[in-house]
């Protein structure tokens, strides 16, 4: 007999549970108790009273579902809708695969003596700082010298594509949130969830939905993880624009569109750029995890280091990721500082 037999008997549900309440021993402890000659009829010790959880109730009444059935139900439910979901999601996300493939192909098939100067030119264009330029050059040339050039460029290509898409979607979502409190209240819990959910958890449903060989699988995982800061900071930046300036814009008869593009976005730009910086950093953090699902780049080397216990490979690749992070951070921060300089209130 199980602890909560009385519950079902007082509710008159024995019929529903099935006549054989506890007669067929199902668990190992039941069997053990039986072999020891115990009948299970002894008085219930209050100290050992189990919480009336699904499993405990199942003991008393086999018709009651076990908790494993909950997760199983989720799994089956997901598998049932997966095909229809794929039909919808596949075409929508296909451009992401193309973009990632194209970026990876492009960066690997362009000679290094074009790619490296191009990257340096970008650095110069956004930062206008000789010191930073020298630092970036040293890092990239160093990585290339130790034959990590291809891996580093793959990682960089993935980050560029994902960060670009994050900005493409994140900024409009942030603008939407800043204009409607309802949308803000609805979006913030989702953002909180995306930010706190362990990154591996994203991968599980994605693996079911898409084939592991498709780049969009890791693309989506990176984007979901990294899009949060740019949304948050766009929202915050626009909400923090000086109310007096907005009032002046209204008083001079600006339309909503003129206000958005002429006042709010330019004044929120420092915050939006801080969000972009964070987004890039977070995509870089995700890129190693994404290597579990076939993302190329330095993450592959890190995983190889872990899998084969090749300490040197893992460490050097890890260090390479740190260097990339520092480069990306400094370059975006330098451009942020330049924007700030023209935005003093």
């Amino acid at each position: 007999m199980a602890t909560y037999d009385w519950l079902f008997s007082t509710l008159g549900l024995e019929q529903w549970c099935g006549a054989s309440g506890g007669s067929a021993p199902t668990s190992l402890s039941d069997l053990a108790a039986q072999s020891r000659g115990e009948t299970g009829e002894q008085a219930v010790d209050i100290w050992e009273l189990p919480f009336p959880s699904m499993d405990a109730l199942n003991d008393a009444c086999p018709a009651f579902p076990q908790s494993r059935e909950l997760t199983l139900g989720l799994e089956e439910g997901f598998l049932d809708i997966k095909d229809t979901l794929s039909v919808v999601l596949d075409p929508i996300t296909q451009p992401l695969s193309w973009a990632l493939d194209a970026a990876l192909y492009g960066i690997l098939n362009t000679p290094w003596w074009i790619v490296i100067p191009l990257l340096l030119a970008i650095t110069w264009a956004v930062s206008r700082s000789w010191g930073l330029l020298a630092f970036v050059a040293a890092c990239i040339l160093g990585l290339a010298f130790i034959d990590h050039y291809d891996y580093a460029m793959q990682t960089l290509a993935i980050i560029f594509v994902c960060a670009f898409i994050c900005v493409l979607f994140g900024v409009p979502i942030g603008i939407g949130m800043s204009r409607s409190d309802t949308m803000q209240n609805a979006t913030i819990p989702i953002l909180d969830m995306l930010q706190t959910l362990p990154p591996f958890v994203y991968l599980i449903p994605l693996i079911f939905l898409f084939s592991v060989t498709e780049p969009k699988l890791y693309g989506i995982a990176i984007i979901l993880y990294a899009i949060v800061p740019v949304i948050r900071l766009t929202n915050l930046g626009i909400r923090m624009v000086d109310k007096n300036v907005i009032e002046a814009a209204d008083a001079f008869g600006m339309t909503d569109r003129q206000k958005l593009f002429g006042v709010q976005i330019p004044l929120a730009l420092p915050n939006i750029m801080a969000g972009v910086n964070q987004t890039i950093m977070m995509s870089l953090a995700m890129v190693v995890i994404a290597s579990l699902v076939s993302a190329p780049g330095l993450g592959v080397l890190v995983l190889r280091g872990i899998r084969n216990l090749e300490l040197g490979v893992g460490l050097v690749a890890g260090l390479g990721i740190v260097l990339l992070a520092v480069i990306l951070d400094r370059v975006t921060k330098a451009s942020l500082a330049r924007i700030n300089a023209t935005h003093k209130a």
Binding site: D242, N244, V245, E247, A248, G262, K344, A345
Partner: peptide
């Protein structure tokens, strides 16, 4: 406006 409210 009192606080000028120029576009910075």
């Amino acid at each position: 406006f009192q606080n000028f409210a120029l576009l910075p």
